[in-house]
């Protein structure tokens, strides 16, 4: 695949104090470092090793990731929202790249 591209699903609006469900998916091979190429050489590990979700600058959820997470990593979790604001999502690659996206939510 080309540059990993995140997909995130957050409800557009919620009631104050509601616990919402967030779903995230990103395209990534998650090369485990366990596989060998046709020459028998080990293919170097290259995975997303960290995922974080913040809301208005405060940490909501994060995940430390090992090579046993499947290609195209999927994470589903919850968040309790008290006010309108912005969710920021970040995926950290072994090569140092950080893939980011954000979503707004309106709290009524």
């Amino acid at each position: 695949m080309a540059t990993p591209k995140p997909r995130v699903k957050v409800p557009k609006s919620a009631a104050a104090g509601e616990v919402i469900t967030i779903k995230t998916l990103i395209s990534h091979e998650m090369e485990s470092g366990q596989r060998k190429d046709k020459q028998g050489d080990t293919i170097p590990r290259k995975i997303i090793n960290k995922f974080t979700c913040d809301f208005n600058g405060q940490p909501v959820f994060s995940c430390d990731i090992d090579p046993a997470i499947s290609a195209n990593p999927y994470f589903e979790f919850n968040a309790k929202v008290a006010e309108s604001g912005t969710f920021k999502f970040a995926w950290v690659d072994d090569d140092g790249s950080v893939y980011e996206t954000e979503k707004q939510i309106e709290v009524k």
Binding site: F61, C63, D66, S70, Y74, E76, N78, K80
Partner: peptide, 24 residues
């Protein structure tokens, strides 16, 4: 090959301690 899969870290803003993923 290695036992580690993932560690989910929660905060009071998580609202619930629940997570779903897909593993090998």
């Amino acid at each position: 090959p290695n036992p580690g899969v993932a560690t989910f870290n929660f905060t009071p803003m998580s609202g619930a301690a629940a997570a779903t993923t897909r593993m090998r």
